[in-house]
């Protein structure tokens, strides 16, 4: 039994590493989000030739600046979506295929948004087709890779699961010294996983919201969205710490 607990602790260490990676991605996501909203807020200003002051004497400047910023926005949105997809393999315990569907759906939504951008602004018509093809291939590849990884993980879980399947409730609650019992481990993993999955879904919808708002730049209330992204309300820090304190009681000082 103690051996099993040790195995689970090992898993928690892995989870901790993954959460560090998550934090790295999170900061990339935030900076991308900030860049994008910085541009989105200013796009309407750029469309009005009256705002150009002395720059007015430079022929075509408003077109050029607007096009440049719009292009930058697209690049930023693309990289945000890429970052978002890199979150995916991190939720590694997941065998929930619904999530994959969701991710695909949100990605298709993103493509629709990009499509609208293309319709709305005629600049990118020519490169549109090859561009769209490119992102699709690239990202689908990412999703397939994550799928593979998820399947492997699931297989491992099933192997481990067949062992624990025979365990009685009593065995699950068995506690040796300060060490956690198996039930603690199972619950902890489930909760952590759940938190991160929900947070991932939240992030997906925040990013879709951002992409949609890019088309209606009149709305300047991007601040709350950003705050939600930063706060990660589904991953309360103290609760996470609490779980880790139970699993690694020897680390509490």
């Amino acid at each position: 039994m103690e051996g099993m607990v040790k195995k689970y602790q090992q898993r928690f260490r892995k989870v901790r590493d993954l959460m560090e990676q998550w934090d790295g991605l999170q900061s990339r996501l935030i900076s991308g989000f900030r860049d994008a909203s910085y541009i989105i807020i200013r796009l309407p200003l750029l469309q009005d030739p009256k705002n150009y002051g002395a720059l007015d004497s430079v022929g075509g400047i408003n077109d050029a600046v607007f096009r440049n910023r719009f292009h930058s926005l697209q690049t930023t949105l693309l990289s945000i979506n890429k970052t978002l997809l890199s979150f995916f393999p991190l939720i590694y315990l997941s065998v929930n295929s619904a999530m994959l569907h969701y991710s695909l759906a949100s990605f298709c939504l993103f493509l629709c948004v990009i499509d609208c951008c293309w319709m709305g602004f005629q600049f990118f018509n020519r490169i549109g087709d090859c561009f769209r093809g490119w992102i699709f291939r690239e990202e689908i590849k990412g999703i397939v890779l994550s799928m593979e990884r998820l399947c492997n993980e699931a297989r491992q879980l099933v192997k481990g699961g067949s062992g624990s399947g025979h365990l009685t409730a009593k065995q699950l609650q068995l506690r040796v010294g300060v060490k956690p019992c198996l039930a603690d481990c199972l619950d902890g993993l489930a909760i952590l996983h759940d938190m991160h999955r929900s947070e991932y879904l939240l992030k997906c919808s925040l990013v879709s919201a951002l992409s949609t708002l890019a088309l209606k730049p009149s709305s300047s209330d991007l601040g709350p969205l950003e705050q939600l992204l930063v706060d990660q309300p589904n991953i309360p820090k103290d609760e996470v710490q609490f779980i880790f304190d139970i699993i690694f009681p020897e680390e509490i000082r």
Binding site: N51, A54, L55, S57, V65
Partner: peptide
């Protein structure tokens, strides 16, 4: 692109929108 010869008197008071465009 073409350019018009600028009259190039600069205003000392500008709207913040213009300044934003300038920075952008």
């Amino acid at each position: 692109g073409k350019s018009n010869k600028p009259s190039m008197k600069f205003k000392s008071d500008l709207k913040s929108d213009t300044l934003e465009v300038c920075l952008t």
